[in-house]
Design a protein around this nucleic acid. Structure first.
Lengths: 333, 333
DNA sequence: ACACCGAGGTTTTACGTATAACGTCTGCCG
DNA sequence: CGGCAGACGTTATACGTAAAACCTCGGTGT
């Protein structure tokens, strides 16, 4: 038999469709007798009834579904953001649908077509640039992750204290004695990375003899390795510490150092950012800045629920943490 | 204004709702004049009309949406499977919704509740064990990835020639001269890994003096490192080659070797499986078996579309490839 | 005696879409 | 001149659900 509807259940239980809807929707107190409710529930289970979600959301005008827009699935920061968002969502009978930025997928880059369902709101990383224009035009409640908090377009912002993270990383290296830095900056035009650059510059400005160069690097190990190798062999004094915008870039920098015969951390210190699983998979394990990824996801979902509820979400930035491992040491004498 | 409906468009364009539906659904040949069609399309664009997907799928009884069930998002094999599946899907006006196995997400482990939309079919990895029981009970078209092809429950299977992969890895090491092996087997009860174990045993059985031990290892770098360290320090002759069920385990094995003061590949050879991005992010880069991940996704989606279409999908296994890098060498003398 | 009420339901309606079934008008053939 | 076939639409309906509005009937307070 085809999938049973509430009408089928009603018929089998000898009641009206409305009664089924009331019972299964838990709105039957004082409207349906306990005995009838039992019978309806039993019949529904027996027939394997599952409500038609399309019909339900058509009726209710809501889907209790959020879209989570991320730049890439392989970047496990976002996998963790998803986990956090999904945890909060499920406790509020909400769903989360992922929209990974569609590199190489094909022509249909429409996040909404991809979601295949109506949406109640969107949570988006500022790194998923191409998807954002479509999203902004859809006047859905939008929560931005790590984007410029002064931008008034989104309904809410969730920010991590990235500036503090970059400051901590830099001061860690300054304290170790480093003065000549190379900043491998992610070649992505996103606020996340602009903040890092600014915080780095500000922190170094307090130490008169500190110098820094900057080189762009892609967010992929081998491409970052090439960029790092190029930057490290450029003319002029060689930096003693490399500050990377992301652990992926740092992993590339490590590979570059090894190819140049530099020992880490003895000859060259390297810091990452994000504390991905990659950070402890490579050798040496990376000194990095740990971001509360799951917490970001939780906050994002909470913020969206608050907005949908007419409340004002929290907006204080989440704290970060310096994790010192084996990729940093005092500079060579 | 609230989101416009087809009725709003119809009113604004001075036609009936049916005409709007015909024009926008591209079914207007000989039913609506070219001029009216133009006007309707212009009005729809002007109002920013987007069809209500809930209403559409209620009417049509289909959602053109597949659920892709994967064990974990961080495992980039599945990120690539998704990419392939999504590519095929978009060219057929289909959507793909991801359901990552819900470790740590919370109580609601129902894949269908999570999808928040009706589904036309499911593509599932055999590794997502907990989700599978729910899926099998839902009598939706099911395509299994890397599961036992003799299992008649799924409507279709997509298989990679894993046995051949394991055979190639093993023969590579045999050719290099290795005779004492350690097999770090993923501690997941899935066909994917059973096949590897069987193929390894069969391949070794052709070489009389080859010996192998097996130790289980979790699919996470540090846990695998611990397992590898334990297995490598066990009493008895030390193996000269470690065959891992997955690159993640191999990365852990590399870490273990380093802690034991063993140089790779000089003192110990290690092979991975899958050719994840991790395989070339670690040092030394891993000799591994490359699986056609995107192709698996494409095949999976094609198979599902075929099943929905009443056709019989292809079922020959996809070929794999040995990639020799820096983690394997002849055994020490 | 009668209005009133609550328990225990049922009937009806609306959500937005796609499409089958049904007009209407114009031109044209027999 | 009758009718008939496109061309160009419109009207009506169904999809499955949730919930508002309505009905019936046995008590109950006054």
């Amino acid at each position: 038999m085809a999938r049973p509807t509430s009408k089928d259940v009603a018929h089998a239980a000898g009641v009206s469709q409305a009664a089924v809807s009331l019972v299964l929707g838990d709105k039957w107190r004082g409207r349906v007798s306990e005995r009838t409710a039992q019978r309806v529930r039993a019949t529904a289970r027996e027939l394997g009834y599952r409500p038609n979600l399309a019909a339900r959301s058509l009726r209710l005008g809501t889907t209790r579904t959020a879209l989570l827009v991320v730049p890439a699935l392989t970047h496990d920061f976002f996998a963790r953001v998803y986990t956090g968002a999904a945890r909060i969502a499920t406790t509020h009978d909400f769903g989360v649908v992922l929209y990974p930025s569609p590199e190489g997928i094909g022509p249909a880059k429409d996040p909404f077509a991809s979601a295949r369902t109506a949406l109640d709101g969107v949570i988006a990383s500022s790194m998923a640039a191409e998807a954002l224009t479509a999203i902004r035009g859809a006047d859905l409640p939008l929560v931005m992750l790590d984007s410029d908090p002064t931008d008034p377009t989104p309904a809410a912002h969730v920010n991590v204290d990235l500036a503090d993270g970059m400051r901590q990383a830099t001061e860690h290296l300054l304290t170790l004695g480093h003065r000549h830095f190379l900043h491998l900056a992610a070649d992505v035009d996103s606020w996340t990375f602009h903040v890092r650059a600014r915080a780095l510059a500000e922190t170094l400005s307090t130490t008169p003899d500190a110098t820094a160069r900057t080189a762009p690097a892609p967010l992929a190990v081998h491409e970052a390795r090439a960029a790092a190798e190029h930057a490290l062999t450029a003319p002029g004094p060689r930096p003693t510490a490399v500050i990377c915008d992301d652990d992926i870039i740092a992993a590339g920098a490590c590979k570059a150092a090894r190819r140049l015969g530099l020992h880490i951390p003895h000859d060259l210190s390297i810091t990452g950012f994000d504390d991905l699983t990659l950070a402890t998979a490579v050798d040496p394990e990376l000194t990095t800045i740990r971001l509360p990824a799951e917490h970001v996801g939780e906050r994002g979902m909470e913020a969206l629920l608050a907005v949908l509820d007419g409340r004002t979400p929290a907006h204080d930035p989440l704290p970060v943490e310096l994790v010192v491992r084996d990729s940093t040491a005092p500079p060579p004498p």
